[in-house]
Nucleic acid binder design. Sequence first.
DNA 1: TCCTCCCTCCCCCGTGCGGCGGAGGCGGAT
DNA 2: ATCCGCCTCCGCCGCACGGGGGAGGGAGGA
Lengths: 216, 216
Amino acid sequence: MTIRIVLADDERMVRTALRAILTAEPGLEVVGEAATGAEAVSVVRELAPDVVLMDVRMPEIDGIRATEQILATLPDPPRIVVVTTFENDAYVYEALRAGASGFLLKRADADALVQAVRLVAHSDCLLFPAAVRALATEYGRAKTAPPAWVARLTGRESEVLRLMAAGLTNAEIAGRMGVGPATVKTHVAAVLAKTATRDRTQAVIAAYEAGFMKDV
Amino acid sequence: MTIRIVLADDERMVRTALRAILTAEPGLEVVGEAATGAEAVSVVRELAPDVVLMDVRMPEIDGIRATEQILATLPDPPRIVVVTTFENDAYVYEALRAGASGFLLKRADADALVQAVRLVAHSDCLLFPAAVRALATEYGRAKTAPPAWVARLTGRESEVLRLMAAGLTNAEIAGRMGVGPATVKTHVAAVLAKTATRDRTQAVIAAYEAGFMKDV
DNA sequence: TCCTCCCTCCCCCGTGCGGCGGAGGCGGAT
DNA sequence: ATCCGCCTCCGCCGCACGGGGGAGGGAGGA
């Protein structure tokens, strides 16, 4: 009942290091390696391992496509763990959405690595099931960096934009903020200028796209 | 360097079972138990464990609030793993957002439980860090069911709403759709009626809130 | 067949909106 | 003491917008 592992990483040193760590563990066995995404797909297809440690950034086919292809073409696919250097690697979310079971930082220590592999292999337990994939799916669309204009808005202007995005008219905003309608118009004009939009509707769209309305 | 664990669950049997599994493992030690959320907070504050296994559904204070309080009040808080029966428990997402490090299904086998605890205790590796919390945060807002009006929109009306939400004026929409401006106005009026909004801005807001713009 | 729904387009009318230019006060930076 | 950014407000103007009607044609079901 040993766990059979395939390593996919374009750097030989990484593969060697991972192999050294994993083969030292009883119950774990590295059965194959791949240096590209395409290679990973074919190797996995041949060897049918239990777990694949997959680098995201690889030549030819990246880890995401490889993950997709493996999961799509194999009847009983292995658990795929995405390995990455950066915690906030955008590819990670793509990979999770593609069906990877989890991700692992390259700076993780040997102990954590081994336990992660064991955990994933048995799985059906920790975070991984449908939940994470759903999370990742939803997350993907929200992960755009906030545009520069957000910071340029003055206090009053953000306030006005927020109320615009709540569907209020200028008069209502004026009432809500305790100022005259003319003042609101001034702020609105400033918002339109800074967001590079031509009317309140576009401004509201920009606010939503920018994640400006996160705290609804 | 043993991992000190606190169990929080209102059912004695569950606590007993977990304790039996965990104490059998070398390197793990159950140092305390709690039957309510409030009790969990005070017990954790006293014992400063490394890991807390927290049931979500508990009397008085539920697991989410308890998690919040623990993380808010303690300087060096423990890792909190939420334990639940149902895979799709809505509370799980709340808990993750509150700062829990992961979640665990009650039907997980002993082996997985032990490995999960070990993993979380050392952490900094698998899925848990900022990523999951961000995912959970985003997930929460996207998980609202689409309102009824979405289905009531006719083909042309949805098209118009989509273009409204792209920031186009009626004239532009007319050009884009190859119809007269008057027609667009009719459709817009229909959209406003069906979405129960009074102007295009509110309609666009409704579209965004309804997840109508998911496929941007 | 008739009726209903959808799409298409027309008129008029009031108004909220946004562009333009100007003004005063208040605070911080230089 | 000067300048600049922010907030506050004023007028005027043109226009896109939205409400209220009405009207015709095509598709599909009762």
